[in-house]
Computed example of a mutant assay.
Amino acid sequence: MIQLQENIRQWIIEYPIILMIAKFIGLLLIVLLLIKLIRVYLKKKISNTAMRYKAQKSIEVFGYLLLILLGLSYFSGVIKDFPLIIGITTAGLAFALQEPILSIVASIYIVLLKVYQSGDRIEINGIKGDVIDVDSMYTTMMEIGEWISGDNYSGRIVKLSNAFVFKGGVYNYSQDFPFVWDELNLSIRYESDVELAKSIVTKIASEILSEFTLRSKAQWKEMVSKFYIEDAQLEPTLAISLTDNGILFNLRYIVDYKKRRSLKHLLSDRIRIEFENTNGKITFATTTIELIKIPDINVKVDENRNL
């Protein structure tokens, strides 16, 4: 037994790297055990599933980073260079994890500057939808559009990296001014009573859109006082232009961003009904080709022709 101990001691003296590895393995096991114990503790103390997952994941990542730093410092053999090792390692990790780090910084930016929040309708990186969650890494949206016409949900949930707020524009439909301008175009034939059509469209627009006009005026005053922006026309406006197919009516109006489709339907239906009640004084223009007369065709047959 004494001889065995002496052999081991001699072996360690001749090969000191083995002792260093053994000590590091022991240190490694201690750190891994601590990580395991902390994860078990967090699992018992945190009831929220999402919070518990994030906390456990953070401890796990921190533990692995600590092991890497300890390994570099341990096998370098020069403790005084430990701050330099930390700096080099941190720079390498920052380069390798630049996207996640940028997402975390962006999440802080989103919250502090109120770029958007849950419930807002936004368009970012070409994706439009309603924000349903913003966490430290991702913005989750209920998608709008794609194969669905109008501002309707497609049914898909989109997770987008928060880092995209630094890479392009963020279009917010609901923040500060929850209204948008929209247009309705319709054409009538040149033979129609244009003045009657103008009065009908203007009357219907005033009746249906009065609520949105009043609400938007108060909001717009706040916008003008808050930002460097000129005053705008909030009442419905009607402009006409002449086209090859007829007289084009362009109705421009302001509406709540969530009611664009339903309001356009209501305006179109009311105008259609009123035009039909004019007993033909107003008719919609179409691109249908109308044949007024079929030309006469004279066919001469030579009876003396040999067949």
Rank of each mutant, 00 (worst) to 15 (best):
residue 134 V to N: 09
residue 99 E to R: 09
residue 51 M to I: 14
residue 100 P to A: 08
residue 161 S to A: 11
residue 181 W to I: 05
residue 4 L to D: 07
residue 196 L to R: 06
residue 287 T to K: 15
residue 3 Q to R: 14
residue 250 N to F: 02
residue 230 E to Y: 08
residue 240 I to K: 03
residue 120 D to Y: 09
residue 149 S to T: 14
residue 284 F to P: 00
residue 293 K to N: 06
residue 221 K to H: 07
residue 197 A to V: 09
residue 248 L to G: 01
residue 22 A to N: 03
residue 266 L to G: 01
residue 58 S to T: 13
residue 73 S to Y: 00
residue 70 L to G: 00
residue 197 A to R: 01
residue 148 I to M: 13
residue 226 K to H: 06
residue 24 F to I: 08
residue 207 E to I: 14
residue 216 S to D: 04
residue 251 L to Q: 01
residue 136 S to Y: 12
residue 111 V to Y: 08
residue 92 G to W: 06
residue 279 N to I: 08
residue 20 M to I: 10
residue 56 Q to Y: 04
residue 239 A to D: 11
residue 192 S to T: 07
residue 237 T to A: 08
residue 74 Y to F: 15
residue 21 I to R: 03
residue 91 A to C: 07
residue 306 N to A: 15
residue 130 D to V: 15
residue 77 G to M: 05
residue 44 K to T: 08
residue 80 K to Y: 04
residue 245 N to M: 12
residue 231 D to Y: 11
residue 290 E to P: 00
residue 98 Q to S: 09
residue 198 K to V: 12
residue 63 G to C: 05
residue 285 A to Q: 10
residue 269 D to Y: 15
residue 70 L to D: 00
residue 50 A to V: 13
residue 203 K to Q: 10
residue 36 K to N: 09
residue 31 V to Y: 02
residue 46 I to P: 01
residue 156 R to H: 14
residue 282 I to Q: 00
residue 128 K to L: 04
residue 187 S to T: 07
residue 49 T to S: 12
residue 151 D to Q: 10
residue 113 L to M: 10
residue 188 I to Q: 04
residue 33 L to I: 13
residue 215 R to A: 03
residue 130 D to C: 03
residue 124 I to A: 06
residue 174 S to W: 05
residue 22 A to C: 08
residue 303 E to C: 02
residue 134 V to K: 04
residue 20 M to H: 13
residue 20 M to A: 11
residue 264 K to I: 07
residue 213 T to L: 04
residue 134 V to T: 11
residue 201 V to E: 01
residue 268 S to L: 07
residue 84 L to S: 02
residue 217 K to Y: 06
residue 139 T to H: 06
residue 128 K to E: 10
residue 271 I to F: 03
residue 294 I to L: 15
residue 91 A to P: 00
residue 237 T to F: 05
residue 298 N to L: 15
residue 105 V to H: 03
residue 87 G to C: 01
residue 132 I to L: 10
residue 100 P to T: 10
residue 68 I to V: 12
residue 264 K to V: 02
residue 53 Y to R: 11
residue 161 S to Q: 09
residue 300 K to P: 00
residue 231 D to C: 12
residue 57 K to V: 12
residue 47 S to F: 09
residue 56 Q to K: 13
residue 240 I to R: 09
residue 19 L to G: 07
residue 18 I to V: 14
residue 63 G to A: 12
residue 233 Q to W: 06
residue 24 F to K: 03
residue 24 F to P: 02
residue 253 Y to K: 07
residue 26 G to Q: 05
residue 120 D to I: 11
residue 72 L to I: 09
residue 89 T to G: 02
residue 61 V to Y: 12
residue 233 Q to E: 15
residue 160 L to A: 05
residue 192 S to V: 05
residue 61 V to W: 10
residue 25 I to R: 03
residue 288 T to M: 03
residue 273 I to M: 10
residue 81 D to L: 13
residue 32 L to E: 06
residue 260 R to N: 04
residue 159 K to H: 13
residue 122 I to F: 02
residue 208 I to N: 05
residue 186 L to F: 15
residue 2 I to S: 04
residue 234 L to C: 05
residue 107 S to L: 10
residue 250 N to Y: 02
residue 302 D to I: 15
residue 307 L to K: 12
residue 97 L to R: 02
residue 156 R to A: 13
residue 135 D to K: 03
residue 270 R to G: 01
residue 281 K to W: 10
residue 250 N to W: 02
residue 38 I to E: 01
residue 144 I to G: 01
residue 260 R to E: 04
residue 28 L to W: 06
residue 47 S to R: 14
residue 303 E to K: 14
residue 38 I to N: 06
residue 3 Q to W: 06
residue 265 H to L: 15
